[in-house]
Design a protein around this nucleic acid. Structure first.
Lengths: 132, 132
DNA sequence: GTATCTGCAAACCATTTGCATAGAT
DNA sequence: ATCTATGCAAATGGTTTGCAGATAC
C-alpha cells in the first residue's frame, strides 16, 4: 500500500480528500504490518487529527475495503485491519492476539497444491495459522 | 469427539448430565465437520430438546471450550464452533462463509517448517486458508 | 436435600446507521 | 453552489450475565 497511489485513486474516483481520510491512509501505511484494531488505529490517527470520530474511521475503512485496499477481520472480540493483501501467512497467537506476517513461498506453494489435490477452486489469499 | 467419552468425562468431573447437555454433545458429534454457528446449533438441538434456551447452549459451549472439546471462532459476524481440534486446515470461503476441513499432512508439515525457519515457537493448530 | 443448571430477560459493547452541519471541490 | 463527508448520538444485534425457579444427583 503506497500513500500517493491510494490518494490518486481516491481522487480519480471522485472521493474528497479530507484531512481525516489522508491521515487514515497514512496511518494504514505506517501500521501496514501491525494488524491494528479499529481502536488502536483511531488512537493512532488522533495523534495527527484529534477530532476524528470513530464513525468516520469506520466508514472510511469500509470504503477502503470495498476498493480492495484492506481486509477487516475479527479476533478476540474486535475488528482488526489487514493491510497486506498479497497472499501470505499470518501467525496468530491465540493467547495474546498478536498477528505476525510470515512470507514463505514454500509453505504457500504446499498449500496451493493441497487445495488442488482436494479439488478446491479459488485462490488462497490470507492464511491464518493459529498458534498456541 | 466421541459421545460416550465426553459424557464420561463430564460425569467424572461432577457435571450434571442434563438432557440439554446430552443433546448438545450429540449435536456436536453429528455436526463435527460442519463448523455450525451458534444459532444453527440451537436449531439443531431444538429438534430433540425443543425448550432449550440460547443461554444454556451458550454456557455449555463455553464449558466445553474450557474443557478442550471445542473452539469458538468468529466469521462474518457470528460465532461458530470448531469441533475437530486435531491440527488441520480449514478452507474458508470468504464469499459464502462455508468452512471445509482439509486434512493434508504435506501442507501441515510445510507450515511447521516455515514456522521453524521463522523462529516461531508454539505448535500450529488450526490453519484457516481464506479462499475467494 | 442441596448444589448445580436452566431459561428468561436484561445488560453489554463493539459495530452500524441516520441525520444535521461542515467542508472539499 | 453543490454534493459529499464528518461527527454526534442513537440503533442494532450477537453475545454475555444475573437470578429465581427447576432438576440431577
Amino acid at each position: 500500500m503506497e500513500l500517493e497511489s491510494v490518494l490518486d485513486e481516491l481522487r480519480a474516483k471522485g472521493y474528497k480528500l479530507t484531512p481525516q481520510r489522508i491521515e487514515i491512509v497514512k496511518a494504514l501505511v505506517e501500521e501496514r504490518y501491525e494488524h491494528p484494531s479499529l481502536n488502536r488505529l483511531l488512537e493512532r490517527v488522533r495523534e495527527k487529527a484529534p477530532t476524528i470520530s470513530f464513525s468516520t474511521l469506520y466508514t472510511t475503512l469500509k470504503m477502503l475495503e470495498e476498493l480492495g485496499y484492506v481486509r477487516l477481520f475479527y479476533l478476540k472480540g474486535e475488528t482488526r485491519v489487514e493491510v497486506n493483501l498479497d497472499p501470505h501467512i499470518n501467525v496468530v497467537n491465540l493467547r495474546t492476539g498478536d498477528v505476525e506476517d510470515l512470507v514463505d513461498e514454500e509453505a504457500m506453494e504446499a498449500l496451493r497444491r493441497a487445495l488442488e489435490r482436494a479439488g478446491i477452486r479459488g485462490r488462497p489469499t490470507i492464511v491464518n495459522v493459529m498458534v498456541e
